[in-house]
Design a protein around this nucleic acid. Sequence first.
DNA 1: CGATTACTTGAGGCCTGTCAATGATGGTGG
DNA 2: CCACCATCATTGACAGGCCTCAAGTAATCG
Lengths: 216, 216
Amino acid sequence: MKRFKTGETTALPGAEIISEGQESRHLYTALSGMGIRFKTLPSGARQVVGFVLPGDFIGLQASITDEMRHGIEARTIMRLCVFDRDRLWDLFRDYPERAYGVTRLAAVEERLLCEALMAVGQLDGKGKVAWLLNRFYRRLFALGMERDGRVPLPYRQQDFADALGLSLVHTNKSLASLRDAGLAVWAQGALKVHDPQALAALAPVDEEFERPRPLM
Amino acid sequence: MKRFKTGETTALPGAEIISEGQESRHLYTALSGMGIRFKTLPSGARQVVGFVLPGDFIGLQASITDEMRHGIEARTIMRLCVFDRDRLWDLFRDYPERAYGVTRLAAVEERLLCEALMAVGQLDGKGKVAWLLNRFYRRLFALGMERDGRVPLPYRQQDFADALGLSLVHTNKSLASLRDAGLAVWAQGALKVHDPQALAALAPVDEEFERPRPLM
DNA sequence: CGATTACTTGAGGCCTGTCAATGATGGTGG
DNA sequence: CCACCATCATTGACAGGCCTCAAGTAATCG
């Protein structure tokens, strides 16, 4: 894969890595750090459509359809591996296994979106928050970032609210409800899940995202 | 592409083409007819995560990740082109342009999901319905199915409700509201949009999905 | 033409959004 | 080291959008 790598970059918290509607000439892989994917409405309302975790691919949509329909913003310091967009086609031509891997990543991403849509559309406030916490716990656990039952979660409640279609206030109250019920505690940028089963009962989470992802 | 085609099938209204959680050995392309993609919660709640229109690809997720996380159900009579799942890899190896096309389809599908998430998460009831009507009108228009300002829309209000995370009752009232305002009328399985701009003002819809899709 | 399914409409209550104020936390400069 | 400021988290009161329940109408099908 070295042939396709053109360098590395660092993004600071709050930095926009790719802007909405932009025609990006680059593709990235997140090496470390976390961020969000989001779309903005003319009204200013923001929908968080996903969270970028280490190992995630960024900008495939732009590379293949000429334009990103959502932006990417860093939430922590991020190290990024940079690829050249024009070489994506070369990869499909010369390395079919890799191309297959890329498509698989896209398919997994689509699954996450489906699950999110399910949560936002069908669950109530408490359920939505439970789903997101559970989903984070599992993804981060699969990445080996769990330690003593805790995983890092360097987001703001506003990010959760924007991801779940809830108001900030209600998100906060739902979090408090889960905390008081002894299910999970999220504070100081870290999440600790006390009762995984109760959480999963509130909001089912598809298993086996822990299947090894193709690395690029 | 004939090499990969293994036959054709017909699905009747209400028939499940692929079941949730199933490990499908086939891939399909919808030749004609329409259907829905959906996920079901243990509680029985159903989230419609997408609508299958002519030209759409079905089952890529299953082929590439071993399992479908959402089911497919026909809403009209559908003619389907059947492919063999095992040959997908052959396609990546021998026909990189085609493989690229498949990945592009997946990327476009992801865009639709993002937009849906945005609508379900951020818009109010009226806006959600306006978005879905507008989205249908544009997709069907791009497919050349518009005639005299009307497009076929053979779904039930319950499907809309399940797609938008609204109750059936509220979906109905929102539709009535749009109708009374003279924006769009959906009846008898056909949709007529009277005021596209007003509809778009309520719910922005990403342009240029009309870009030619790779056919399979 | 009867039965089933889908659509429509009204009433009442709960969940969730908005407004508002306070507390906690972290970074900055004197 | 402390005052100051900005950002984020927390909590309460109130209003409104949306859900549920329920009944009635229309359309579809055998």
